[in-house]
Design a protein around this nucleic acid. Sequence first.
DNA 1: ATTAGGG
DNA 2: CCCTAAT
Length: 482
Amino acid sequence: MKTERKPHLIKKLADMKCQRVDGPVVPGMEVATEAEHLLSEPKSEHVSVDRVLCFGKENLEKHLKMEDFFSCALDYSWRINCGGVHGQGGDDLKLEVLDGLLDEVDEVDDIQATHDLSGACEGFQLDIEFPEKFSLSDCAPHEGSNLRNLSSQSHTPGFSGSSSSAGGISESSTTTVRESNSNNGVLEKMVSCDLHHTFKSKFGCQTPVTDTICSTIEHMQSFDESDDDEKPLVSFILSTKSVKSSVEMTKGGGALLRQKRLRKPTSRYIEEFSRNSTTSGKNKRLKVGSQGDLPQVASEPQQQRGCPKKIVPKLELESDCELSASESEDDQKRSKRSKMACDRRKHQRMWTLAEVIKLVDGIAQFGVGKWTDIKRLLFASSAYRTPVDLRDKWRNLLRSSSAHKHNRRELQCETKPKHAVRPLPMPVVCRIHELATIHPYPMARGPKKPSDRHVPSSKQPRTTEVAPFHSHGRNSLRNKHH
DNA sequence: ATTAGGG
DNA sequence: CCCTAAT
């Protein structure tokens, strides 16, 4: 993997550069000033900024501040794409959240389209000025359910998946970075140029870019697990997205005017969108995949969702998209690419505690087979989470809950240092258990084997609301003999 | 169109 | 999560 990554990057970068060659490269003074400003004053002073800057400093001393700045920006991008350079849970979590948020974009599509990107861009500038207010001013057609559960949903420590996979991912990420580091001579040069140019020509607000991202992430983190409060997040997404779109525009459109660049992206965006929906009208999820286009460079060489690691965030997906985006020159190629790579896999969204609870609630109300109902009533606000997802989640919950019961006292000794795979609060687990016993869930029964010895009376007690009978006799006679 | 089950 | 088979 390592070896593959490097060439990848270089190639991409080279591509980018090529496309950009024709354009005039005018390092404006304003830019320099702003960049300097940013550097000297880590306004958002979030870890991210700090680290990024530090990272750049190490190898860029000999370069101008400008280059520093852009390199940093790139690095930052990488961080986002690669799933975090740092192995700490915090960062991972952050990234996950970011991913999730980006994911959300698809839900906001209409809105965004309606409002036009120009609006979004302005909004994103505003964000910088009033980061604390989310400045929905421009791009928030949503009723203000602003900071609703912000705090009510205590940061869930992360779910079973996140904790265990954190290590793996961070590891690979680190590797990646190190490599890019060694190649800095080349990469940096190109990157600086390209980014520099891109930003320069695209935005009048280069500085804000980084800044925005930082603050955005910051906020995202705060929102973190909030589940149906996607609305407030929208604004950030929009702002971030607008940036991305614009950048991509630069690549593809090339000769577009500066002034209209803010709006033009829309067309391309729409194009992408429509193409997508046409191609995969059936799969709503896919929409996300092709839309999520990050201007940054990615390194992950595709991992396939079947990957053992539980967390296989959209890094890949984004990288794919990015790839296709950079090659936007040949439509053929691109469409093929996007079709091929971008198409499948929906982003992996972490299940929040709230969601789990809701799910359990729903199951309690409607019964175990009624995924669509549950989805409609309890997850209406979340476009992701298809009924199937709900079912899957339930399945997992069952498994984990049974594991809880089983491991409870037995395997405590084997708890490895980072084996905190159990963020599920007791009450929830209990409920799951109840439901599990109440509802006959065929598949879970097999491997679970709690029914072997003593489970005679568990079903009968509360069959009132759970509607134990389904049209499909799947439950009762589930013999798997194809 | 939904659901179950497997990967 | 994604895909396929069965309803």
